[in-house]
Computed example of a mutant assay.
Amino acid sequence: MEITIVAGARPNFMKISPIIKAIEKLKTEQKPISYRLIHTGQHYSAALSDTFFDELQIPKPNKNLDVKSGTQAEQTASIMIAFEKELAENRPDFVLVVGDVTSTMACAIVTKKANIPLIHVEAGIRSGDRTMPEEINRMVTDSITDYFFTTSEKASQNLIDEGHSKEKIFFVGNVMIDTLLKNLNRIEKPTFWSDFNLKPKGYFLLTLHRPSNVDKGSSFAELLRTIVSHAGDTPIIFPVHPRTQQVLEAITSEFKNLHVVEPQGYLNFIYLLKNAKAILTDSGGITEEASILNVPCLTFRNSTERPETCTLGTNVLVANNIEKITASFQRLNNDEWQQAQEIPLWDGKASERIIENLVEIYYSKKGN
């Protein structure tokens, strides 16, 4: 059985790492399984790509499609053209895509047009917000997927509600948490830790990248002012995504306790996350990690595709609502934040369940 695994952007790398390790484990047991790793090149800077391969001990990709930057349409088209050639030259038994980035959707479409069975890991999550590019990517990918691996019972139910067969849906847990738990003993203090005189639970970690929050300079500045005003004297560490840097340059000079740093590697970032007083973000994946580490998390969005981080985790949706933001900071300062509870199957074994199920699927198809 040969699986082509696709990765293209930072969130993908954390998701494919444990899947590859699960395959490698079966290979050591002399099981007939192999994989071909394709990096689309959607994230191509060292900080967003190469570093994660090194830190997470992911093997060098068999092929880098090297598509690089462009508009959503340009990236999608470039990935599709390059991936079509890849599948023509190296046809697998399955193609496995993860998450909801542009590479996920583009390679999913090419896979189905080539009549190759498609696997989607982290299938079924929905925010209900179709203004998010990721929501479109999820919906398109799931509409043509053959086998779905989900992080929650809610995600599985979303797929059933959309008309997909229960027999093709497998609730396995969260591969992002597999990576987190496997690497907690390897996390590293960033080099700037002492430069900013940081202390455990003595700073906020901020990440913002969604167009609705960062693309308009005036509204972005207003959001930062709100955050800084509520943070008081507490330092704010802001690793800046490349798409945010240009907008940010014109407005950061007024914020004295806001420290802008380069995008962080995985081990440095998790160190920052684990030791933060709270996470301030508009990322979905970071809310998962914060919940497992029991770190308070404020999400500057109106909705989330990961509702379990709110019901069982440490995540609270505050959008850009001043009243909600103020109330949340008050709860933080009063040590009244909700404590994380156990989230079903977020136990570090999701990738093993995925590969076990794929082996069964493969031999079942072969037997037929």
Results as ranks from 00 to 15, higher is better:
residue 66 D to I: 13
residue 174 N to W: 00
residue 166 K to I: 15
residue 94 F to D: 10
residue 135 E to A: 03
residue 269 F to Q: 05
residue 218 S to G: 10
residue 172 V to L: 09
residue 343 I to D: 00
residue 353 R to H: 04
residue 270 I to K: 00
residue 112 K to L: 03
residue 68 K to E: 11
residue 309 T to V: 06
residue 140 V to I: 08
residue 304 T to V: 02
residue 313 G to K: 00
residue 321 N to W: 09
residue 70 G to L: 01
residue 268 N to S: 06
residue 237 I to F: 10
residue 332 L to V: 06
residue 38 I to Q: 13
residue 131 T to W: 08
residue 89 E to P: 11
residue 116 I to R: 14
residue 134 E to R: 00
residue 156 S to G: 08
residue 73 A to V: 10
residue 214 V to M: 07
residue 110 V to D: 06
residue 357 N to C: 11
residue 332 L to W: 05
residue 325 I to G: 02
residue 95 V to R: 09
residue 197 N to L: 13
residue 135 E to V: 02
residue 338 Q to N: 13
residue 363 Y to S: 07
residue 106 A to E: 10
residue 368 N to H: 15
residue 291 S to H: 03
residue 15 K to T: 01
residue 127 S to P: 04
residue 58 I to V: 11
residue 18 P to E: 08
residue 246 Q to T: 15
residue 368 N to V: 14
residue 61 P to W: 14
residue 305 E to I: 04
residue 161 D to S: 10
residue 344 P to F: 02
residue 27 K to A: 07
residue 234 T to V: 15
residue 155 A to E: 03
residue 102 T to F: 05
residue 131 T to V: 04
residue 237 I to K: 11
residue 106 A to G: 09
residue 193 W to Q: 02
residue 292 I to T: 01
residue 113 K to C: 09
residue 194 S to P: 07
residue 277 K to H: 09
residue 275 N to P: 05
residue 349 K to W: 07
residue 14 M to H: 03
residue 20 I to M: 07
residue 62 N to W: 12
residue 102 T to N: 12
residue 47 A to P: 07
residue 362 Y to L: 14
residue 169 I to T: 11
residue 181 L to S: 01
residue 94 F to Y: 13
residue 272 L to I: 03
residue 90 N to G: 10
residue 138 R to T: 06
residue 265 G to I: 03
residue 364 S to Y: 11
residue 256 K to T: 15
residue 344 P to V: 02
residue 49 S to W: 05
residue 340 A to Y: 02
residue 292 I to H: 01
residue 12 N to R: 05
residue 221 A to M: 13
residue 295 V to R: 10
residue 121 V to N: 03
residue 155 A to M: 01
residue 48 L to S: 11
residue 130 R to N: 05
residue 304 T to N: 01
residue 256 K to G: 12
residue 157 Q to Y: 01
residue 285 G to D: 01
residue 125 I to G: 05
residue 7 A to E: 07
residue 107 C to A: 10
residue 172 V to I: 13
residue 326 T to W: 13
residue 265 G to L: 02
residue 253 S to W: 13
residue 114 A to T: 09
residue 99 G to Y: 00
residue 233 D to M: 14
residue 298 L to Y: 06
residue 199 K to E: 14
residue 57 Q to C: 15
residue 23 I to D: 09
residue 48 L to E: 14
residue 182 K to I: 04
residue 164 H to Y: 05
residue 3 I to S: 11
residue 41 G to Y: 10
residue 94 F to G: 10
residue 215 D to W: 11
residue 76 T to F: 04
residue 233 D to K: 15
residue 256 K to Y: 14
residue 348 G to R: 05
residue 312 L to F: 08
residue 144 I to M: 03
residue 65 L to V: 10
residue 143 S to Q: 08
residue 271 Y to G: 06
residue 270 I to G: 00
residue 171 F to Y: 12
residue 212 S to K: 13
residue 225 R to K: 15
residue 87 L to Y: 08
residue 138 R to G: 06
residue 331 R to G: 11
residue 116 I to M: 13
residue 293 L to Y: 00
residue 67 V to C: 12
residue 38 I to K: 14
residue 266 Y to S: 02
residue 76 T to D: 06
residue 261 V to P: 03
residue 305 E to N: 03
residue 251 I to F: 07
residue 226 T to P: 11
residue 37 L to W: 11
residue 190 P to Y: 09
residue 61 P to Q: 14
residue 107 C to H: 06
residue 254 E to C: 11
residue 101 V to I: 06
residue 342 E to Y: 01
residue 223 L to M: 13
residue 173 G to L: 06
residue 284 G to F: 01
residue 114 A to K: 15
residue 161 D to V: 09
residue 223 L to C: 10
residue 308 E to Y: 04
